[in-house]
C-alpha cells in the first residue's frame, strides 16, 4: 500500500460520508416540512359585518364569531376585542357596562382598560372600516 492509495481511500471516504450526510439532510428536510404542515387553515382575520344600517348610532353590538364588540358613537365606529389579555378566554359583559373574564375574573371597563387584574393590558382595539358599498369590515390582524 503506497501513499497514493491512502489519499485515494481518504478521498473516497470523504465522498461517501458527504453523500450519506447529504441524503440524511435531504431526508430530514423533507420530514421537517412534512411535520410542520398545518391541516386546518388559519382562522379568518377579516369579518364582513354587513351593512352599516345594522348598527345605528349609539348601538353596542356583541359579535360572538370574532369575538368582539362593535360600538357606534358620535365619533364613528370602533371595535374592541373580547379576548382577555391575560390568557385568552372570551370575556363577558358585566352589570356595569364593563367586561369580566370568566376564567380569572379580570375586569375591564367599557372602553377596555383594566379595572382589576390579573390582566395587565387593556382589551385590544380592532380596526373597523366602512367600505364604499356601505358594508362594515372588521380586521383582527
Amino acid at each position: 500500500m503506497n501513499e497514493k492509495d491512502v489519499t485515494r481511500r481518504d478521498f473516497l471516504k470523504l465522498i461517501t460520508n458527504g453523500l450519506l450526510t447529504l441524503s440524511g439532510l435531504l431526508g430530514l428536510g423533507g420530514i421537517f416540512r412534512f411535520l410542520t404542515y398545518q391541516t386546518d387553515p388559519s382562522p379568518p382575520t377579516e369579518f364582513d359585518l354587513g351593512p352599516t344600517t345594522n348598527y345605528p348610532d349609539g348601538s353596542r353590538t356583541v359579535l360572538p364569531r370574532v369575538p368582539a364588540v362593535l360600538l357606534h358613537t358620535k365619533d364613528g365606529y370602533s371595535a374592541l376585542s373580547l379576548v382577555c389579555t391575560h390568557l385568552g378566554c372570551t370575556v363577558n359583559e358585566d352589570d356595569s357596562d364593563g367586561y369580566v373574564c370568566p376564567c380569572h375574573t379580570s375586569r375591564f371597563s367599557a372602553n377596555g382598560s383594566v379595572v382589576r387584574g390579573p390582566a395587565d393590558r387593556p382589551l385590544r382595539a380592532l380596526r373597523v372600516e366602512e367600505h364604499d358599498d356601505g358594508r362594515l369590515w372588521l380586521y383582527t390582524a
Binding site: G30, I31, R33, F34, Y37, T39
Partner: peptide
C-alpha cells in the same frame, strides 16, 4: 385524512 396526507402535506404522498 388519507387524502390530506396524500395530496396536501408536503412529502406526504411520498
Amino acid at each position: 385524512s388519507v387524502q390530506t396526507l396524500t395530496y396536501l402535506v408536503p412529502y406526504g404522498g411520498l
